[in-house]
Amino acid sequence: MDTQTQAPYKRFRPERYKPQMALSWWWQKPTYLLYILRELTSVFVATYAVILLLTLRALGAGGEAWSDWLTTLQSPGMIALHLVILLFAVYHSLTWFSLAPTALVLRIKDYTVPAKALVVAHVVIWLLCSIAIAAIVLTR
């Protein structure tokens, strides 16, 4: 975007010093670090989407492929990977819910629903959805 609205000042002191951002900028404030961690959850979300896809392929490939896939899932490496994915996925969910009120402003007549109530509503819906999914799968 061109933001120039007037010629830059050049007459007596045209020199400017432009500070450069350090490669380690995200390490310099706790809030920045938490932000980068939040963004990195996406790597784990993507990883899980791929794992879920593989799970579906195994499911569709017959009983033998399915039990092979279960053995793979039982390996310590896979268990550890899923633990890490779960941690990041939960962090993703919690940060997503806590930021939802920034974009969502609910007005009922003259009353603005407080941001905290929106976050709590998200968490409650999240827990209900999770219980529902678990119930559908486990009671088959």
């Binding site: 899980y48 994915i85 779960l86 996925a89 993703h92 999770s130 999914i133």
Partner: peptide
């Protein structure tokens, strides 16, 4: 995503 990781993983 979290519930699927918990259940299947």
């Amino acid at each position: 995503v979290p519930i699927h990781v918990l259940l299947l993983g």
